[in-house]
């Protein structure tokens, strides 16, 4: 099995540790992982702002970089959802379609493809889980409070394999953090308020770390935590699953 590692642009630039942890975790689990160095971005920042027509080159690059792999794995629900739903190439529609079927968010890949049953990780902290909307409602990696359906969570099932971790309960376990791509600057007031409320829920319940599958949500909450002067940290789920 040959896996192409897709590292979203902002993770590459600002959160390399999340990417390194993803790589190391997959290697530990015996997967052959390759990182195509010419990758850039899934195109979501433009598309969500209404400029999907500008994403042509991003789409072509994505296909060029990742077509050859059996699976593509990324430490992000949001970028994976964008590729699944919107990757297209008029010159190569079949390749785009194939990629959208073989790209996975990390925790979905670990539980669904690798069927991981145990991990050698240890993380002795109180951790709050942020359910990123695109991973949860878009990729269905967890059940949703709005739907009448059995409860499950792929990220939680993995975190439960980590030694000494304490997962906290939240008042609103799947409310959006307000990042929303360019929404975070175009709707600054509401975005910040949503972020503050999310962070407050974690703080109230004694979180030492906030984790999740999407670094973009965590970047948003980190910005608020730091401004509050809080010692609580954000951490990508891969870093916990890879912690020793």
């Amino acid at each position: 099995m040959k896996v192409g590692l897709f590292i979203p642009c902002y993770v590459d630039q600002f959160y390399p540790n999340a990417a390194i942890a993803t790589l190391r975790l997959l290697q530990k689990l015996g997967v052959e992982v390759v990182y195509p160095s010419k990758q850039t971005c899934c195109g979501q920042p433009m598309a969500n702002s209404g400029f999907e027509h500008l994403t042509k080159r991003c789409n072509e690059l994505f296909i060029e970089n990742f077509e050859e792999f059996d699976y593509i794995v990324a430490p992000s629900g949001s970028c994976v959802l964008h590729i699944r739903d919107h990757l297209h190439d008029d010159k190569n529609p079949e390749a785009a379609k194939r990629i959208s079927h073989k790209i996975y968010e990390l925790t979905a890949f670990l539980t669904g493809v690798l069927k991981v049953k145990s991990l050698a990780a240890k993380f002795p902290y109180r951790v709050g889980i942020h359910q990123s909307c695109h991973g949860q409602r878009g990729l269905h990696i967890s059940s949703m409070t709005e739907l009448v359906s059995p409860e499950f969570s792929k990220p939680n099932s993995l975190l439960n394999m980590v030694q000494d971790i304490e997962l906290i309960h939240l008042d609103r376990k799947d409310e959006c953090c307000g990042f929303g791509g360019t929404f975070c600057v175009t709707e600054e007031a509401v975005s910040v308020k949503m972020g503050k409320d999310r962070v407050e829920d974690h703080l109230k319940h004694g979180a030492e770390y906030i984790t999740g599958v999407d670094m973009s949500c965590m970047m948003h909450m980190e910005g608020i935590l730091k401004r509050l002067g809080s010692k609580v940290k954000v951490i990508h789920i891969a870093e916990i699953l890879n912690a020793e």
Partner: peptide, 26 residues
């Protein structure tokens, strides 16, 4: 002028990107 910064801190810029780290380490 940066609406992000008004009520949120910017992420701390790491010394190297993942891309640079990968070229060095892998």
């Amino acid at each position: 002028l940066n609406p992000w910064f008004k009520q949120r801190d910017m992420p701390y810029p790491p010394a190297e990107s993942f891309n640079e780290w990968y070229a060095k380490n892998e």
